[in-house]
């Protein structure tokens, strides 16, 4: 067995999985709080990538230093996506909070289509080249054939985001309010938690992680268009369901499993069937363990 190739696939799968995780977190957090699959979440990710592209192009043109461009583009993408996430909840979901769940779901699909077409009209239907925001580090050159410095940066960012998120949810007051709301919304309100605020915060945090994921992938892949949110969104959704929707550790685990499945199957069998393997896996999980790997009943939501 070729161990170096195996290692490459392992690390490739890890990178891929960690990006899915950044997006899947938004799905699972929103589901944990209001039991809604936010289908517009993939579009938030796409809008994050577009914002970063615009900001980075302008700043690169102005001749700014690479690191500053990367940071500013990322920050702009986060702020812009958060604003979208916040507005989407207020416009499309809040008025339907007490309506049947199907209504909110349809509203989510409508929002997703609207945003895709809005970006299609406002920007372009074609693929746009995305500048590489993360430079290749020279000192990493000898190992770059196993894992590139881009991938290292992606992993490092993802891990730090997840640590931050865990700390926030576990230890801060707002994190506790989120968990309380997920468990019993009325009771949370009765001990003084402002439910609307908690829901807004959940959407904003989910949008921020999606934007980070969007910028990282776009920079890694090198091109974007209005449609990238759809497939990334579906994959992240699969990952969230794999892990057990509503569970944060589940979303991360599901994403890693999905990343490795894709990586190993494409590496050892054929890359033509990448999506087939991902969805085949979903079908198998849904048949044999419908509540996901970390079933919802025994794990903590949010």
């Amino acid at each position: 067995m070729d161990w170096e190739y195996f290692l490459e696939l392992l690390l490739g799968g890890l990178t891929r999985g960690s990006i899915y995780a950044l997006i899947a977190l938004g799905y699972t957090m929103v589901y944990g709080i209001i039991e809604l699959i936010n289908f517009a979440h993939g579009e938030i990710y796409m809008i994050g990538a577009f914002t970063a592209l615009i900001v980075a192009s302008v700043l690169n043109y102005a001749g700014m230093n690479h690191v500053a461009v990367a940071i500013l583009a990322m920050v702009a993408a986060i702020i812009y996506s958060c604003a979208y996430g916040f507005a989407i909840e207020k416009i499309a979901y809040k008025p339907l909070r007490n309506a049947p769940r199907l209504s909110a779901l349809i509203s989510a699909i409508g929002m997703s289509l609207f945003l895709q077409n809005y970006v299609l009209l406002a920007q372009t239907p074609d693929f746009l080249p995305f500048p590489s925001l993360i430079p290749d580090f020279d000192f990493w050159e000898p190992y770059a054939h196993i894992i590139s410095s881009q991938e290292i940066a992606i992993l490092a960012t993802t891990v730090s985001v997840m640590i931050l998120l865990t700390v926030m949810i576990k230890f801060t007051i707002i994190g506790k309010a989120m968990r309380a709301t997920a468990q019993d919304r009325i009771m949370a309100a009765l001990v003084g938690v402002d439910i609307n605020r908690v829901i807004s915060v959940t959407f904003v945090v989910g949008s921020a992680t999606a934007a980070i994921g969007g910028v990282l992938i776009a920079s890694h892949v090198g091109q974007i268009n209005f449609y990238i949110g759809f497939i990334a969104g579906i994959k992240a959704f699969v990952a969230a369901v794999l892990g057990g929707i509503g569970s944060i550790p589940g979303a991360v685990l599901g994403s890693l499993v999905l990343g490795w499945t894709e990586s190993f199957f494409t590496g050892y069998i054929s890359s033509d069937y990448e999506d087939v393997f991902a969805f085949l896996f979903l079908v198998l999980i849904l048949i044999f363990r419908p509540s996901g790997i970390l079933g919802r009943s025994e794990t903590q939501k949010v």
Binding site: M168, T172, I173, I174, G175, K176, A177, R179, A180, Q183, D184, M187, A188, V191, G192, V193, V201, V204, V205, Q300, K301
Partner: peptide, 25 residues
């Protein structure tokens, strides 16, 4: 809140008497 600790349950009650928001967090 069954999945939270006893201390956390009480801390949630204190939530409404605090003023720091998401940025503080």
């Amino acid at each position: 809140f069954q999945n939270m600790t006893v201390l956390e349950n009480v801390m949630i009650g204190r939530h409404c008497r605090t003023s720091s928001g998401i940025l503080g967090a």
